[in-house]
């Protein structure tokens, strides 16, 4: 197998990975406006990811353009930032979810107490 073919395999794997992640993420649902923005960003991300997978030199050129030595370094930085962003957004969502569970559990306990009446 020559190097060109080996690269083809990893390119296909990565493209499939990006496609699956894109589909999964588009399906999650929150507010309509929020969701639209997220979907647009997601498509842009998918296109950029695909472009970089097909033509890795793009990433290196972009890296040099923004002042980073190598494409892999740029990728690492983007990943680190993306991870923190992800953590922050999910922390907020988890707190909201905890709040909802608390409200729900409390409402249930109070409704049950009303139903059975004061003993």
């Amino acid at each position: 197998m020559d190097p060109q073919d080996q690269q083809l395999i990893i390119k296909i794997l990565l493209l499939v990975g990006v496609a699956v992640a894109t589909v999964l993420l588009t399906r999650s649902s929150t507010g309509a406006r929020h969701q639209a923005i997220r979907r647009v960003l997601l498509i842009l991300f998918a296109l950029a990811a695909a472009a970089v997978v097909v033509e890795p030199a793009l990433l290196s050129r972009l890296a040099r353009f923004v002042g980073v030595g190598r494409g892999t370094d740029l990728l690492l930085y983007a990943l680190a930032v993306g991870f923190v962003w992800f953590l922050a957004s999910y922390y907020g969502r988890m707190r909201a979810l905890n709040r909802q569970i608390t409200d729900l559990t409390r409402a249930l306990a109070l409704a049950e107490a009303r139903r059975t009446g004061p003993s």
Binding site: I101, T102, R106, A109, L110, E112, A113, P118, S119
Partner: peptide, 10 residues
């Protein structure tokens, strides 16, 4: 006591 119950531990 009058007992109210949380369905899950909060």
């Amino acid at each position: 006591a009058t007992v109210l119950r949380h369905a899950t531990n909060l």
